[in-house]
Design a protein around this nucleic acid. Structure first.
Lengths: 254, 254
DNA sequence: ACTATTTATTACCCATGGGTAATATACGGG
DNA sequence: CCCGTATATTACCCATGGGTAATAAATAGT
């Protein structure tokens, strides 16, 4: 343990009593990284700003230099996740292919997102904890995500890559599976996020695809029970850092 | 509106200032019905015991005649839902058939449960709000539910009704879809709970079934967008009563 | 009717934690 | 070196809401 190491992956820019000259945005993001982890770990209501501050080696009021309040922090966390999803959708839509191709691509990306903190925040945070305004924004964004799934499915039905089905219900089923990943996945388990994502992309589309699914060597059913017991039903602790991405500058105060 | 009607579906046994002689268990259950609805509607932390009491025409301390505290009420709500699931599993296991048959049966029942209050409580309530002891019980129960799904799938793979696949991941995918129903379904929408359940049973198994799925006249893709806009992403308000079932007598006080 | 028991009410307590005010410290520029 | 600005700290405030104590009203039994 070297306490003076410059800056490992997920560390606080506020070193105990020292160099505090980092750029403002870096600190903002550090707050969000810490907050999202804590909110996921303990749940928004049990998590306190005091604890967030403590993990950053600062005190609660300092947080108010960067955010208006707890609910705004929550919103910003969600917002980062949302940008990541938007990127997924944009890329997926840009890349050509059949409806099914796009659907698969989106599933892979979205699934992997669900294994990261900011992705989880999209499905684990309660919209009702937000301010009226932010809640509206979130709801609109969620509709847009839903539409992406539905559109790809509908498009697939049209171009023949997807069996005739109700796009709405199919989207519900698929998105449900994916969103649930955000509740049970924890890094360090049997499978990596990427592996889960790819497996789900196959599993979730082989029911509605017109052509047979599997590509690579047909994966045989796996044995072996994990050491850390997971369940499709519950949400365990969470931790682990997530992607950073810095195209944000909204919400400057003063 | 006849205020003196004896006892409609979801009403308080405590009539404003009057007849208070109902059996204890009936009152207990009335508290739970009200609580589960409110917890779903507002979220556990935003919901207050004062509000629960108010909806029952009583005051907060009266609730403590029936429960030790808020978290115990939460647990009891969950517990009722769990009993309902247990019944599903028991019935499904009792009825014979291939692994796939059982899986489908369980999906239908479980899905429909997810459209009811007590069912939703299984997936919407946060385990971390419970006492240490109750949390353990819940976790165990969740593992049991997960096992049922996995076992049916594994059995299906063995008896040839289900394509070779990893039962664990398949169970995750299916349970995820189903659990998510508890987040988006609201009665009064386009489809009834039963309809959703049956549709999901087909959709979720047609990917892993060995034989072609659909039974009745092949349902054509449906058009028509609902008046009340749903999304695969968010959780709306909730209300509606759920099944009662009264095989409970645990937790008597004093 | 009188009493015991159950069940409700009114009036509190108080821990928690979000948020603020006043103030101190660091930093960058002239 | 001094001053303005940004950023942090200490010391508070106070609304909320779970939980309790003391007490009153209803009910059942004899």
């Amino acid at each position: 343990m070297d306490a003076s190491s410059p800056s490992s992956s997920n560390e606080s820019p506020w070193l105990p009593f020292e160099s505090r000259r980092r750029a403002r945005d870096e600190k903002r993001e550090a707050v969000l990284r810490t907050a999202v982890a804590l909110f996921l770990e303990q749940g928004y209501h049990r998590a306190t700003l005091n604890e967030v501050a403590k993990r950053l080696n600062i005190t609660k009021p300092a947080l108010y230099n960067y955010f208006r309040g707890k609910d705004e922090i929550l919103y910003e966390c969600w917002s980062i996740g949302n940008e990541l999803v938007d990127d997924c959708i944009a890329e997926t839509s840009a890349a050509g292919g059949s409806g099914l191709d796009k659907l698969r691509k989106l599933i892979v990306r979205y699934a992997e997102l669900m294994t990261e903190d900011y992705g989880k925040s999209l499905v684990r945070f309660d919209i009702r904890d937000l301010s009226e305004d932010n809640r509206k924004i979130v709801q609109t964004a969620k509709r847009r995500i839903d539409r992406a799934f539905r559109d790809y499915i509908a498009q697939g039905v049209k171009d023949g890559s997807v069996k005739p089905c109700d796009p709405k219900l199919a989207a519900f089923a698929i998105a449900g599976s994916l969103n649930w990943i955000g509740h049970w996945f924890q890094p360090g388990g049997e499978m990596t996020g990427r592996a889960v994502a790819e497996e789900f992309a196959i599993r979730l589309t082989e029911g509605i695809a017109t052509s047979p699914t599997r590509k690579k060597a047909d994966k045989p059913p796996r044995k072996g029970n994990a050491s850390r017991e997971e369940t499709s039903e519950h949400h365990p602790r969470a931790a682990a850092g997530a992607a950073g991405q810095s195209k944000r500058a909204r919400g400057r105060l003063r």
